[in-house]
């Protein structure tokens, strides 16, 4: 069953990102599902802060992927928003980001990837309830989810 978490501000979303980063290990993938303005960027900024990434977390919408150096591991930040056909992922070497040995992958718009999903992953769904209110659903998928 997914864990539900109500969020009522951008600051709370970022703080959740910081806390969530603490449970991430190299090879982990996090899929972020939420519409435009749901708070994916804010969550990602929190994760980056939690991993000790210095400097800006520029949107990967245009470049598809941006890499950041954290304290102990890298953050691979992907955004598949501009993708239409999952087969196009082959072109960016997408499979190397699915369970990176030296870091974690955070994938926005994972629904554009079709079947190209990691073997195991965290899925965070963000539903915008109106105003500043969001409902998060956090669930672990894959072989060790039991």
């Amino acid at each position: 069953m997914p864990t539900e978490l109500p969020i009522d501000s951008a600051a709370a979303m970022r703080q959740f990102g910081v806390e969530f980063a603490a449970r991430l290990r190299p090879g982990d993938s996090v899929l972020l599902h939420g519409d435009l303005g749901a708070g994916k960027t804010t969550f990602t900024q929190g994760v980056a802060e939690g991993l000790g990434v210095q400097g800006a977390v520029q949107s990967p919408t245009f470049t598809l992927v941006r890499e950041h150096e954290g304290r102990e591991m890298r953050l691979y930040h992907l955004d598949l928003y501009r993708l239409d056909d999952p087969d196009e992922l082959e072109n960016i070497g997408y499979e190397t980001y699915l369970d990176p040995p030296d870091g974690v992958s955070l994938i926005e718009w994972p629904e554009r990837a079709g079947d190209w999903l990691p073997g195991a992953f965290w899925l965070i769904r963000i539903e915008h309830l109106g105003g500043d209110r969001r409902m998060l659903e956090i669930q672990r998928y894959g072989e060790d989810s039991a």
């Binding site: 245009f62 598809l64 928003y81 501009r82 993708l83 239409d84 056909d85 087969d87 196009e88 992922l89 082959e90 072109n91 960016i92």
Partner: peptide, 8 residues
């Protein structure tokens, strides 16, 4: 497609 598609 509503955006630039790299492989395309």
């Amino acid at each position: 497609h509503g955006g630039v598609v790299p492989e395309l």
